[in-house]
Amino acid sequence: MYKVAVSGINAVDNPGPGIGIAKSLKESDLEVMVLGLAYDAMEPGIYMKWLIDKSYIMPYPSKGENLLIERLLYIKNNFGLDAVIPALDAELPLFIKNASLLENYEIKTFLPTNDQFKLRGKDKLPEVADKIGVKIPKTKVITSYEELIEATEKLGFPVMIKGLFYKAYKAYNISQATSYFNSIVEEWGYPVIVQELISGEEINVVGVGDGEGGHFGLLGIKKLWITSLGKIWTGVTIKNEKLLSATEKFISEFHWKGAFEFECITKDNEIYLIEINPRFPAWVYFATGVGINLPARLLKAALGLEVERDWNYEPGKFYIRFTDDFVTDISEFQKITLKGEC
């Protein structure tokens, strides 16, 4: 029995990937006990005992690495912990930085290196796109209001205004652009990215790189229906050779290690790279559902077990999210609130 901690168990309208990961691990050929790492007592995953066997409240990543390590060691010493699959953007820098320390404590991870992690920065996308033979929308990296004016004049409206790592807004005029620029600077600081808007088909890939230039499987999809927050609600598997071979080139070129999501737009037979997420997306169960259990494969890689590499899936498989509910006792809430675990 492997005891594996998974974060992102906030199965809400902006869902974290944790439930999809937990569901995949439970459906794998490994015997896994899933430990949920939560940041709020209201995260629904805490109460979904059929997927998350036990949950722990974690210190916020902003509190620093010492508290995180302490908490993980507490879990290891009191319950047992073989591996962690962090799934939230804000946690990843801490986990990546401390991967070898955790390894010393026999808590396994399978994460990108710090250099690979930096590739997700939108200022790095031109370099990535160039190396793997895809395009990117015309992009300006700016650090002042004057440069914002200049960039929008050159690119024309509408444009995308983005933070280096997070947030993306569509601006149709200079007043919208200015307001989004200010809001990003206030929250995330400089630089800000101004990008040409490419209207085409949004297509995505999820995969796990083996860290040596190969991978443990890929799945290409198109989001067919998204919520107002941009979250997938229905999707379909696709086999776009250009997209999949660009993804394989990305993995081999950068020796990507761990989970990732590739977000692209295809237009006029060209692929435009929009974003690289260095973790599983919330729809990762889609891969498991078509026979490529990426979370289980990542876990096997972390544990040093033999990992399957087949990824021959059918295009035209349909993914559907739905809402559900259940009832439990308030004692669960009481335990997680008072003891920080349940």
């Binding site: 088909e201 297509i203 999809i221 198109k222 696709i238 295009p315």
Partner: peptide
Amino acid sequence: AINEEGFIFDPDTGNS
């Protein structure tokens, strides 16, 4: 992919 009832699926783009 084309079926007899006239449903067409493009595996490249996911459009139907």
